[in-house]
C-alpha cells in the first residue's frame, strides 16, 4: 500500500496547477523512489516529467509499485478543499480503485477526507537520454514568465539564442517584432535574481510560445528556472523543488 504525507498541501497543489493545462489524465507512479509522472500533451509536442522524492514526504511508505491513474481536473477540484499549509496524506491500496486524500489543519483540529476515483491509463514511458547541452541558462522564473507572456502578444514563435554574453529571446509577428536580452549577471546578495549562463557552444532554436507560456504556470514552484538548449533536441525547462522537480521538454520548430 501507499501512504505518503506532505507537510504542505501547497506542494501538490502547485504541481497540479503547473501541469493540468498540458495533460488531462496521467499516471502517478509510486515506488520506492517517490512519486513520479511522465506524460505528453495531446499533440505530442511537449512532455512533462515530475518527481517528488521520498524526502518530500514524512512518512513515505510504498510496498510495491502502484500506478495511480488520475484525471488532473478531478484532483484539482479535491485539492481546492485543502489549505496551503494543511498536512496532506495520500493513501492507496496495492490495486486501488480510489486514492484517499486527508487534509489536516494543525491549527483547529479539522480533518477532511476525500476519495478520488482512479482510472486505467495505458501510458507508454519514453526514455529521455542524458544530454550534454550546448547551453544551460538559470534565470528568475518570474522573468522567464514575463518574457514569454510579452512576446506571445506579438507572435506564435520565439527564437532563443544563448551566447557567452547573454540569452536573447526574439520574435516576429504581424504587428512588428520584439526582443529581450538578459545579460549574464551574478547577483551575490540575491542569487535568485541572477542570470547564469553555462556555455559549451552558442546555440539558437525556435519554439512555440503557446507551450512556453503554459510551462510558466510552474513558476510558483521555484524562484528560478533552468533552460537547457542544444541544436536539434527538445528544450529542457526545469523547475526545482526542495525534494524533486517538474521538467518540461519542448520539441523545436524546424527552420525555414
Amino acid at each position: 500500500m501507499l501512504e505518503a504525507r506532505l507537510e504542505q498541501a501547497a506542494v501538490l497543489k502547485k504541481v497540479v496547477d503547473a501541469i493540468k493545462d498540458l495533460v488531462q489524465d496521467c499516471n502517478f507512479d509510486c515506488n520506492d523512489s517517490g512519486i513520479q509522472l511522465q506524460a505528453m500533451d495531446n499533440s505530442h509536442v511537449a512532455l512533462v516529467a515530475m518527481h517528488l522524492k521520498t524526502d518530500a514526504f514524512s512518512p513515505y511508505r510504498c510496498d510495491r509499485n502502484i500506478a495511480l491513474g488520475i484525471n488532473l481536473a478531478s484532483l484539482q477540484k479535491v485539492l481546492r478543499a485543502a489549505q496551503n499549509d494543511d498536512l496532506l496524506t495520500l493513501k492507496a491500496e496495492d490495486a486501488p480503485d480510489v486514492l484517499n486524500l486527508v487534509f489536516e489543519s494543525a491549527e483547529n483540529d479539522r480533518i477532511a477526507e476525500y476519495d478520488i476515483k482512479l482510472m486505467d491509463i495505458d501510458q507508454e514511458h519514453l526514455g529521455i537520454p542524458d544530454t550534454e547541452y550546448a547551453a544551460t541558462v538559470t534565470m528568475p522564473s518570474s522573468e522567464f514568465q514575463r518574457i514569454c507572456r510579452d512576446l506571445n502578444a506579438l507572435s506564435e514563435s520565439v527564437s532563443i539564442e544563448a551566447a557567452k554574453e547573454g540569452i536573447k529571446f526574439s520574435c516576429q509577428g504581424d504587428i512588428g517584432s520584439g526582443a529581450v536580452t538578459l545579460r549574464q549577471n551574478n547577483n551575490v546578495e540575491k542569487p535568485d535574481l541572477s542570470t547564469i549562463i553555462e556555455l559549451n557552444e552558442p546555440v539558437g532554436l525556435t519554439f512555440s510560445l503557446k507551450y512556453l507560456v503554459n510551462f510558466c504556470k510552474a513558476s510558483s514552484l521555484s524562484n528560478t528556472v533552468k533552460l537547457s538548449l542544444s541544436a536539434e533536441v527538445p528544450l529542457l525547462i526545469e523547475y526545482k523543488m526542495e525534494s524533486g522537480y517538474v521538467r518540461f521538454y519542448l520539441a523545436p520548430k524546424i527552420g525555414d
Binding site: 499533440s43 519514453l126 514563435s157 512555440s208 520539441a251 520548430k253 527552420g255
Partner: peptide, 14 residues
C-alpha cells in the same frame, strides 16, 4: 514556414 517537431521523434518508448 516553420514546422513543429514532435517529442516522439526525439525520445523513444522505453
Amino acid at each position: 514556414a516553420k514546422g513543429q517537431r514532435t517529442i516522439s521523434s526525439f525520445f523513444a518508448p522505453k
